[in-house]
Amino acid sequence: MKVAVLGCGGLGHVHARIYAGMEEVSLTAVCDIDAGRADRLAEELGVAAYADFRDMLEEAEFDVISIAVPSWLHHAYAVQAARAGKHVICEKPIALTAEDARDMIDVCEANGVRLFIGHVVRFFPDYVHLKQTLDNGAIGKPGVAHASRKGGHPAATHPWYADEAKSGGVIVDLMIHDLDFLRWSFGEVARVYGMVRNEELLEYALVTLEFESGAVANVEAYWGYPGQFQTKAELAGSGGIVQTSSLDSSSVRVHRRESASENGPFVAIPGSPSFHSPYELELKHFIACIRGEAEPAVTAQDALRALEIALAAKQSSQTGHPVQLAPAAQGYHGGDHR
């Protein structure tokens, strides 16, 4: 099975290097509109470089495309690849509107190709453990959950993130990880209430999810946090509590002085190394699914639902009113979340 990667930014690098190291697939090409960036990555991995996706579609040999371009481009490239008969693995969020997301799903189905969305938190061992602890009954019935994700503002280095029309903002881009995780854990969401504050290089959101079961969760997402990227979560149930925190589980901590001066500033770099990164587990799993060797741990429908919850939270933050979600059982049609 042959794979190509579209987008040679941070995550494109991650994807390409993982495929290059996988025995199950061979990476044949990478593509980026920044030709220099594509060339450098292609040279590192010994594959072909393209600056135009249409050229790669015509010339390169691949069965699967891994899409790691800015979110507003997901839909167009995924649809184009699907129509060319390529299986699609696409970074989250699936798209920026539910209509685009549904179209991606429909076009992939119509063209007989698979579609996978990179909700990588489902492959983080700490979050998998939370879910397993809930599922094995250790904390009883779902009660109150929290999830939090904070880090620097990505627009500080990639200005497109500051444009909501391109990134979807902090809820659609960042919080969506936890929205998917919490729905995975606590089930379907019935109602969403959201609050957002936007300042210069700061976007902060507080969202409450009311689940069909009656359980509730509050989710925090923060772009512009002046500290180490960090995540934490807690599931509290009728029979107990399970908590995780990326800071508390930093198993390697480096502290070093930035200058020779005794009292100069210092930097602290907490790390949590694993032998297999969650991205590697995720991409291997998606490839196994395409080869018919595994059932997807997260589907495109899950990704669509996470997007719908995120969009409902945004809508709530704009109107000041809670947003009722259409029951999942009734399908994913209709753009009105009220």
Partner: peptide
């Protein structure tokens, strides 16, 4: 779970649960 908006524009939430 209680959300609050302040006259300053600040936002807040409190988890009040006996969890």
């Amino acid at each position: 779970m209680l959300h609050v908006r302040f006259d300053s524009g600040a936002i807040g939430v409190i988890d009040t649960s006996w969890s």
